[in-house]
Computed example of a mutant assay.
Amino acid sequence: MEQDSHHHQRWEGKVSARLRNVTKAQAWPLVKDFFNLHKRFPTLATCYGLHGSNGDPGCIRYCAGFSIPSNGPESVSWSKERLLAVDDVDFWLKYEIVESNIGFNSYESTMKVTSDDDDDDDDESNGCMLEWSFAVDPVKGLELEELVGKYHVALQVMAQKMEEEIQSLVSGILNNT
């Protein structure tokens, strides 16, 4: 009774970005700051908590601000996202979209902070990596490669904003000592 086998195949993608001169321990609190994604994510106008405590599994955030050209120039996209799991030891979190107007169905995503080289955990001075992976039902009007490209660009901007935020914090601490 299956009409279109392609329709049931989930899309999966993963992108990464390097943070220079930032340790995993410095980057992780910014990734875990679930209710404040708008501070680091390009084109996101707002993000705030709807339910639960920031960073606790089960909490839900509301994000808005991506433009949706297919719906006209004035359209604002939005999503409600639930934090599913957090691992403060291995520095990853997993979340899902529970409701949205962006065409993402059955969406789950994982964000991780990893070492540049897992064999050399003692020296993180050269930086760390952000990894963002996702699985979603095919999105109408998009190709998987286009979606992965959007994630890649967004993660590079996030990494740059995180580097700047951390360097600003470190400079502020050094200037006050």
Rank of each mutant, 00 (worst) to 15 (best):
M1E: 00
M1Q: 01
S5N: 09
E12C: 04
G13P: 10
G13N: 05
V15G: 02
S16M: 11
S16K: 01
N21W: 15
N21A: 07
A25F: 06
Q26H: 04
K32L: 03
F34D: 10
L37S: 04
L37G: 01
K39A: 00
K39T: 02
R40A: 09
P42A: 03
A45K: 03
N54L: 08
D56N: 10
R61Q: 08
S67P: 09
S67K: 15
S67I: 12
I68T: 05
S70Q: 07
S75R: 14
S75P: 03
R82Y: 15
A85N: 11
V86M: 05
D88W: 07
D88P: 08
F91L: 04
E96A: 06
E99W: 01
N101S: 03
G103S: 09
F104P: 00
F104G: 00
N105Q: 10
Y107W: 10
Y107E: 02
Y107A: 00
S109A: 10
M111R: 15
D116N: 12
D118F: 14
D121R: 07
E124L: 07
G127I: 13
M129Y: 08
M129S: 11
L130C: 07
A135T: 14
V136K: 00
K140T: 08
G141S: 04
L142T: 11
L144Q: 12
E145V: 14
H152Q: 12
L155G: 13
M162A: 06
M162K: 02
I166A: 00
I166N: 02
S171W: 11
I173F: 15
I173R: 08
